[in-house]
Design a protein around this nucleic acid. Structure first.
Length: 347
DNA sequence: AAATCTCTCAACCGCCGCTGT
DNA sequence: GACAGCGGCGGTTGAGAGATT
């Protein structure tokens, strides 16, 4: 049986026909909306009130904006989500012409993928914990000048910066994921498609790994990861009372770790974050966590902080040119959420 | 050209909170 | 306080379109 022919208690379900749409529009134009329970009968529709309300709210309302989300809207959604979580209706209230359903769909089908590919957990807006684990391992290896690295530019004093480290991690993770996706994440709170996300990551070959490593420019400023961290110990320079840090203003995971370790964490973390108040860095600015606690928080983390890559380094092999344009741009809108954001999240 | 896979998004479902009785 | 009705919200589903094999 097709969806359009589904009926229950004499009420039609499934896609709306143009005739039904017109009936609903005509009725609401004459009588206004509300009283959804009785509306269908009065309008001559064999639909439940709920269905009418949804059809009107998500599709027929005259002030609905159609078409692609702009970059500004996308940024706004990400930042609002970092503060509000899955409060789609509140997020929608801050984006004129967009519905909660539309935003929710866009989040699930586009933004979540992008963040994930960038090494960001779309639920918490923090670096994916599997990335952090690898960062820790790699960091230790690199700073110990481990002889197992055969790449000459990695020998001796490490000249790899943290953005490069992230790029390398993404490549490594692609290998790990491809070989056994179950190793990487077991997010109970992930959408079904999130497993596909993992599986869709490009397969990594030795050649790709070599390529990734070779993209690290030997003639870049010789700044170690540690120096990089110290230099950026106050990367935000924002008024934390009034302004959220722009997601894209973090160069890399290390910046975020520092941000998280500072007291400013509170201002852009939502109440039930399991990572909240965890000091992720030690005094040297190095990752400070134990794997088991991180892993245990992976499945339940529900809330967001912030972060992102802004600059030239792309975290992910699979990132499209379009995505690079979007997220690599230095001309980025600073969407100031908290100015005028009231208790319910409305601007 | 056909079969299969993947992705998108409109629509549904169940739950929750508010309000009136 | 208990209950019912209603509207709203967030999670999930699945048809259809497009992409790939």
């Amino acid at each position: 049986m097709t969806k359009s022919s589904t009926e229950k208690n004499g009420l039609k379900k499934g896609p709306w026909t143009p005739e039904e749409d017109q009936k609903l529009i005509d009725y609401i134009q004459k009588h206004g909306h509300g009283k959804w329970r009785t509306l269908p009968k009065n309008a001559g529709l064999r639909r439940c009130g709920k269905s009418c309300r949804l059809r009107w709210a998500n599709y027929l309302r005259p002030d609905i904006k159609r078409g692609r989300f702009s970059f500004e809207e996308e940024e706004a959604i990400i930042q609002l989500h970092s503060v509000l979580g899955n409060k789609w209706s509140t997020i929608a209230a801050n984006l004129p012409g967009r519905t909660d359903n539309e935003i929710k769909n866009y989040w699930n089908t586009h933004i979540k993928k992008k963040l994930f590919k960038m090494g960001i957990d779309p639920v918490t807006h923090t670096p994916r914990l599997d990335v952090l684990q690898l960062a820790s391992i790699l960091n230790t290896s690199l700073f110990n000048s481990s002889p197992q690295f055969n790449y000459p530019f990695l020998s001796g004093r490490s000249v790899i910066n943290s953005s490069q480290l992230l790029s390398l991690l993404s490549t490594l993770l692609s290998c790990q994921t491809r070989n056994n996706p179950d190793n990487v994440l077991n997010h109970n709170n992930f959408h079904q498609n999130d497993n596909q996300l993992l599986q869709n990551q490009p397969q990594c070959t030795q050649m790709q790994l070599d390529d990734t490593l070779q993209t690290f420019q030997p003639n870049q400023p010789q700044v170690s990861l540690q120096e990089n961290l110290i230099a950026k110990s106050n990367p935000l320079n924002v008024d934390h009372q009034n302004t959220l840090p722009n997601l894209w203003h973090y160069d890399n995971i290390s910046d975020l770790q520092i941000a998280q370790s500072s007291s400013t964490m509170q201002c852009f973390s939502s109440p039930n974050s399991h990572l909240e108040n965890q000091n992720l860095c030690n005094n040297e600015g190095m990752p400070n966590f134990n794997l088991s606690s991180l892993l245990s928080s992976t499945t339940s983390s529900s809330s967001p902080s912030t972060l992102n890559s802004s600059s030239s380094t792309t975290f992910v092999n699979g990132t499209t040119e379009d995505e690079r344009d979007t997220y690599g741009s230095s001309n980025i809108l600073m969407y100031n959420i908290s100015n005028g954001l009231n208790d319910s999240g409305l601007l």
